[in-house]
Design a binder for these strands. Structure first.
Lengths: 197, 197
DNA sequence: CAACTGACAAAAATTGAAATCTGTCATCTG
DNA sequence: CAGATGACAGATTTCAATTTTTGTCAGTTG
């Protein structure tokens, strides 16, 4: 019993995610999480200093699942241009899935965005880092050519340029008709901006 | 007296703008506007059906001032690439000035954005229309080259790509250090995407 | 009689008291 | 004695009563 029921951070995160999914960020309480685990709320505070820390840890895990899925595209063997296009499409698809399938966790994520949480900054850094890896390879192979710009700066520019298709502030627009055509037009423009003549 | 004091839509808009500037969108009331004009609030409703219509009319006027200033750039005689760059820089500068100088009217504008008001859509259409004019000329002259895309589609792509530097949702970031370098990097990328090889 | 007023109903915002929640810690328990 | 508990203070949220605001319109005024 002791081993199976041991109260670990992992189990707490699992329960918190479930509670957030059910109640949303506005209604979920630490007492709810404790109740779901069959412990007192004091025990939860033994593992997470504040409710905010708990929310951030859950969101980080949730965002990291996306980063990990995308890192598969970065590591692919296709030409960088193709990989970049695929990576952007998968990011867009992943974000859309997140709003659709997990609206309450998405709302939690948006709360952290509003607070400029470090978790969100980290996620952005993760993603631009992946972009920079693809762009770096493209520059090395001569497939990409912009002179005088580092992969990091270009990655940031590409990330900013495509914000409408991954920034949660725009989530409402992701269901509008024509959004896919607009995505394609924008990605075409960006890829042309990177490509060697 | 009758002529000078005539209650016109124009005078009401003037007074409303002043009241909004002083109290902000959350506190400004129609009675405040009426008081500022020395009339009863019933008289204000004779010219504007609802408070929302009043807010929208004020915001439209305020946004139109920006559109008009930018249309000067569209009509310029420089090469389209230069004009496009200048136009984007002026849009960014204008939006930054608006947040800085008129925070309460900017907040009013953001309320309309949140409500997906027709005024905001119109403003966006105005701006992408101006972009399309510049791009159309660039294509005609052979300075721009993307195959198979209309000026309208390209304009929309350029507008979306630069959202971080004109969309009010990002206003908080416009004061961060390094923002100008990021703006330049993004505009360079976009212009490269449009340019003929 | 065209423009304006102000009393009014319905809707929305504000207030303040009660209830709930967060985070701490002295105490308990296996 | 490591880990868990639950009573507690202070912060935050909820809820209902009250006030303010919106929008209308019958009546007033120049």
């Amino acid at each position: 019993m002791a081993t199976i029921d041991a109260l670990t951070p992992e189990r707490i995160l699992e329960a918190t995610e479930e509670v957030l999914r059910r109640h949303g960020p506005a209604k979920a309480t630490v007492v709810d999480v404790a109740r779901a685990l069959g412990v007192s709320h004091g025990s939860v505070y033994r593992h997470f200093r504040t409710k905010t820390a708990l929310r951030e840890a859950v969101t980080q895990r949730w965002l990291d699942r996306t980063s990990m899925a995308l890192s598969g595209v970065v590591a692919g063997s296709e030409p960088p241009g193709t990989r970049l296009r695929r990576w952007l499409a998968e990011l867009f698809a992943a974000k859309r899935r997140k709003v659709g399938d997990d609206p309450e966790l998405f709302a939690t994520y948006m709360v952290l965005v509003g607070e400029s949480s470090a978790v969100v900054n980290r996620h952005r850094a993760d993603l631009t880092g992946q972009l920079a890896r693809i762009i770096h390879e493209g520059l090395e192979r001569g497939e990409f050519a912009p002179a005088g710009a580092s992969p990091e700066v270009l990655a940031r520019a590409v990330f900013d340029a495509t914000g409408r298709f991954h920034d949660p502030a725009y989530a409402r627009e992701w269901a509008e008709p024509g959004i896919d055509a607009e995505f394609t037009a924008l990605v075409d423009l960006v890829l042309r901006g990177l490509a060697a003549p």
